[in-house]
């Protein structure tokens, strides 16, 4: 009986803890949105962060996109050829990439590559008193450190997702058309008639924009509120990656149901 009460109490404790963290995260993102360090300085800081968040993620995105597209081409071909429907390869590859794999895979890779780096960097700045130092020099760390990183992430992820899809389609074409010999005209023609700019491509971009907000938000939040020890920073980094991945996958289901599904 005593143990049961203890368990219920710990559930309550966790719920309260979650509510506090959630409220704090919301206040945090509000203060980020209203903090902008002015046009010139902001642009300079933003470019620097676009480099460390976006440019440094390019290689992993391009390589993964290429291989995912090639695998799709290979797998799609071996399945479709059984039904004599290999001309549907183009639509299959492009729809899979543009609607799902582009936004989701790039968000997961982004969480691992850029999200974890952001959390670790901000957490270490907290641990080495750089954020306190800034605060005591009458400079707001949210304006100066957090906001540029947040916006860089929000801008970068949709661009990376577009790149992922484009490289993926190229990889699929390489395997399907150049190696396996699917007719080039049918491949592109069917793709173009199946894929709609607004319905498929644009919705995919909206998805990755939402993922960009979520992943970067989690990353800067966990970094900013990390316990200032080596253990605390490593815990915060792990949390960023795990929570971003789960949130991205769950949110993908919701968005897919709203955009493409019959559920809405």
């Amino acid at each position: 009986m005593h143990r049961l009460i203890h368990h219920i109490q710990s559930i309550g404790q966790k719920t309260i803890g979650f509510c506090i963290a959630f409220g704090r995260a919301n206040l945090f993102i509000l203060s980020i949105i209203f903090a902008w360090p002015g046009f010139k300085l902001g642009a300079r800081l933003l470019v620097k962060q676009l480099y460390s968040v976006g440019v440094l993620s390019l290689i992993i995105i391009v390589v993964s996109g290429g291989f995912v597209g090639m695998v799709l081409g290979l797998q799609g071909y071996t399945t479709l050829i059984k039904f004599g429907a290999e001309q549907a390869l183009g639509p299959m590859i492009s729809l899979a990439l543009v609607r799902e794999l582009g936004p989701v895979m790039s968000a997961l890779l982004f969480a691992g590559r850029a999200g974890s780096a952001l959390t670790a960097e901000i957490g270490l700045m907290r641990a080495t008193e750089q954020l306190s130092g800034m605060e005591m020099m009458a400079v707001d760390p949210i304006t100066r450190v957090i906001a540029p990183r947040f916006w860089a992430g929000v801008i970068s992820l949709p661009l990376l997702a577009i790149l992922f899809s484009a490289v993926g389609v190229w990889g699929g074409t390489l395997v399907g058309v150049n190696w396996l010999g699917v007719d080039e005209g049918a491949f592109w023609g069917n793709m173009q008639s199946a894929v709609d700019w607004h319905e498929d491509v644009w919705n995919g971009i909206i998805k990755s924009f939402v993922f960009g907000i979520l992943v970067t938000w989690l990353a800067v939040f966990h970094g900013y509120y990390a316990t200032p020890t080596s253990e605390g920073v490593s815990l915060a980094t792990t949390r960023t990656v795990v929570q971003s991945s789960l949130v991205v996958l769950a949110m993908d289901f919701v968005l897919t149901a709203l955009m493409f599904g019959e559920l809405g």
């Binding site: 577009i162 484009a166 173009q192 894929v195 491509v201």
Partner: peptide, 13 residues
Amino acid sequence: LSAIFLALRVSGL
């Protein structure tokens, strides 16, 4: 350029 590729070549916009 990738966005243009998706628009013109993939979705036939």
